[in-house]
Nucleic acid binder design. Structure first.
Lengths: 349, 349
DNA sequence: CGAATTCTTGTAATCGATTACATCTACTGT
DNA sequence: ACAGTAGATGTAATCGATTACAAGAATTCG
């Protein structure tokens, strides 16, 4: 009953040597039996596999990485403000990658240069075979400039202008925003406000442009007092703050296009608190179609971004580029369609 | 202008050898200059650091891991259904770990045995120095039984009964649920329904027990027709389904305690669609206090779980246990307090 | 001032796999 | 029957760091 040995943390891990010895073959053969099964005899393969079963051997990742110069890991960089927009994206990424035997290292940059530097170092240390930057804020760190030559990098949701070295997976934010605002105009709205996203974000810029496009197309002059900038982030508080702007206004808009669902939801909520009802008194449109949009009251009209599909496609592309070491698979730019999801928050007037 | 060399992906990475040569010292000295700065002269340290700066050297992670037998990575296992409950948890974990130079590998188990086996293998391959299991479904995989002897493991939000080998960070789900239901009873409710979480979840069981406790304490008999089980997950659809149960009932409850906020929100939403208003017609209580609870209409009364704090504490504990190789820091059990957050969804009758 | 001690640095073994190359065996074709 | 080739396996180098040990230099102390 003495189990001293069983729980001893010092029990040396089994190595390929142990397996080789037990199977009566060389370590080279063990390695081959696993990596190139048809290069060994049926018999030896059996012997090796049985020895592996008996010992409970699992190849050491560090040793493998060192020699084979590949870690089978990818880094996913997220902005990492509380936002749960990325949950399905990360889910999809993990699903594809882990199915292919790749590990997913997550990094939250939080718009801090220090953290970007940190993760640039992770890449340069050869710790990952590929990188997915899932954020509008493309890393500016100088350390990053050398990085694309080492491992393939993909950008999701927002491409860097003129970066042909990255694969880009995004949507046409500008066109999508224009569609949304066009939808409002079609419903009879002329006085339409826009709550922007955080500054320095490509999405913010593009969606604002789309807003302008739609206005221009309808011959409506841009009214700067209806552009509510510097909201902070794609979050509730930005919506709250925008509500204050709304209440402060003399000549209020009849519709408001928020650059993200969470902003829209925060806005609607603050409006309600102030006694203003959506869509009776104001119409509101969002962007993203996060899980909560449909369950809100009123259910939010919004532009759906294909987050899961985007994740899947980006993962598959990166996988392809990582295995093609001869740069045979060049970076691509995939632009997925958004979909206007009409619910209850925009009223015809 | 020929930049062939600049972008050549074959540009061999700089190694410690290159640095040593440039600084005119041995590789051992370079290693020491970095790891144990006060074991080398001020002068040599300077020489090494300047050589590093000049070459842009970053130590290879695999080589380091192989020799030092530590990867400076942790695995965070999440259930990985769409649920965004874990977003702040993961955020907090990443923050603490990456500050200490640890990488965070995420794994979504999705209640699939195959995936658990996969991640058991990742651990056994020595790919991580520690593991955080952030889910109510504790891995059942046989491969996992050997694992705690290799690296420290912590459980978050739900401990395994009688597992003294893991650190556990959780809340008293039973007491918290009882508090919530007690609050309803205090508000005058006697006919209180409960929407449970997914089966086979420790949280589900505990919260149900707390519900029973509160009922018993008030001398209210448990009415099985008011216990809505097998809801599916901690998600909206579970709430939708529960709403169907509600509508099907002759003698409807005046209050409903949902085992999670998302369930509660889905429930409220479906009720509204059916013309039933919360809290006018029914009171609803949730659990978790996710970001959306406060922005909903009505703002949801719920039990707040200290997710960020939990993440921070668990990360710090794991960090401690990983560095103490002599098992000097034993696993602990930390139980954090929940907080009843009273908003608008429960009405006094 | 010489022995003992401490400090700094270098040499070389080591971690555990993968893989180039060599060797040996067993076919194939003429 | 024999040279030539293909297939299976083993030997040993290799990946790039860390670190035990040794050696030399500098310091301390009686």
């Amino acid at each position: 009953m003495t189990t001293t040995e069983d729980h001893a943390p010092s029990a040396r891990a089994v190595t390929i040597q142990d397996v080789a010895r037990l199977a009566g073959v060389s370590t080279a053969t063990v390695s081959r039996a696993l990596a190139l099964p048809d290069r060994v005899t049926e018999a030896t393969r059996e012997a090796v596999l049985s020895a592996i079963r008996e010992t409970g051997y699992t190849p050491n990742a560090a040793a493998r990485s060192l020699r084979a110069k590949s870690t089978r890991m990818v880094l996913v960089l997220l902005p990492g403000i509380g936002n749960s927009f990325f949950t399905p994206v990360l889910n999809a990424l993990e699903e594809v990658f882990s199915d292919q035997g790749y590990g997913v290292l997550v990094g939250y940059t939080r718009q801090s240069r220090r953290r970007e530097t940190h993760y640039a170092r992770v890449i340069r240390a050869g710790q990952v075979d590929g990188v997915l930057v899932v954020t509008g804020n493309v890393p500016r760190d100088e350390e990053f400039v050398a990085v694309p030559d080492q491992v393939p990098i993909s950008l999701m949701f927002a491409g860097i202008p003129g970066g042909a070295r990255f694969s880009v997976f995004d949507v046409d934010n500008r066109a999508a925003a224009a569609t949304m605002v066009g939808h409002m105009i079609e419903a009879g709205h002329r006085r339409i406000a826009h709550i922007t996203g955080p500054d320095n974000s490509i999405e913010t810029d593009e969606r604002f442009r789309g807003y302008c496009d739609a206005l221009a197309a309808a011959g409506i002059a841009l009214d700067e007092s209806l552009v509510w900038r510097g909201a902070g982030n794609f979050d509730f508080v930005s919506g709250d703050r925008a509500a204050a702007r709304y209440f402060a206004l003399e000549d209020r808009p009849t519709a408001v296009f928020a650059a993200a669902d969470e902003i829209a939801l925060g806005f609607v909520r603050s409006l309600k608190t102030g006694g203003v009802s959506v869509p009776r008194d104001v119409s509101v449109g969002g962007f993203d179609d996060t899980e909560y949009a449909i369950h809100y009251d009123p259910a939010l009209t919004t532009m759906r971004q294909p987050r899961t599909e985007m994740g899947r496609l980006a993962a598959e592309d990166l996988l392809r580029r990582m295995s093609d070491k001869g740069a045979a698979t060049p970076p691509t730019h995939v632009r997925l369609p958004c979909e206007l999801v009409i619910r209850e928050s925009i009223r015809r007037i």
